[in-house]
Design a protein around this nucleic acid. Sequence first.
DNA 1: AGCCAGGCCTCAA
DNA 2: TTGAGGCATGGC
Length: 283
Amino acid sequence: MQPFNFIIMSYNVSKNLIYADKEYFDPYLTLTCGQLFRYKCFGDVYEVISADKKCVIKQTNDTVIIDSNDSEYFVNYFDLNTDYAKISNFLKNFPELTCAVESGKGIRILRQDLYETIISFIISANNNISRIRKIISSACLAHGINMGDYHAFFTVKQGTQITEQQWRSYGAGFRAPYLVSTCNELSSKSLLSDLPKMDYFSCINALTQLKGVGRKVADCVSLFALAHRYAYPVDTWIFKSGKTDELNTVEKVRNYYTTRYGEFAGYAQQYIFNFSRTKSKSK
DNA sequence: AGCCAGGCCTCAA
DNA sequence: TTGAGGCATGGC
């Protein structure tokens, strides 16, 4: 399959503004579906912080407007060069995905900063999204560079200065020693610059060497930061919705659905995750 | 009040 | 290789 078949220019850039087609970009779903943790909602206006950058998202009837000081960064961040119409139409053909794709229409899978994603998803282990957001927010407030109206995510160097006790005071709990260890590893080795050059399985192998990074976190990093859309992170929601008498372990669920959805497994996973959580909230 | 959360680590067998 | 148990904390 040729990559350019899935590329479409559904946006325009004018100075600090990006105008994106709203048809396949729902900011609310994209921001709240658990792939990023540094965003705020002000009615239908949103603020997103990624690494040391910030953007503000506004909307008209048919357009999403992204205001930032680095349009190129956020075009890539929001994956605006990928054609989600083709992806969702393809996935809709799987009967078990029809409802999930419909209700998750407009979710985009981001291309996030690698370091921030690794740290954030170590914190995510056995945790809930609102707590994850608070822990990350506290750490960034204390250690990230003050950018005026927001704080950047702490740098790799700043990360090495956060003590276990400080992590605990931010609410990281038993993950505190993992965070200290991984911050040091990422600072002293070349992993952060090597990972983007690796194939998917090499990424999983390298990432799971880090403390606090198991297969699920490694899959999230592969999917949300390294653009390996084959990755299929199996968390409690995905496992509950996918398990059967035969598929009774996390490994079996992951193997079955990565094979079933192939190079689009990551997108499918995100639709399923969103759908099962919204179903659970409404009852 | 008690279960659960975008799981991982250690330690047995 | 697989399974059990423990784990900080607070949302709901």
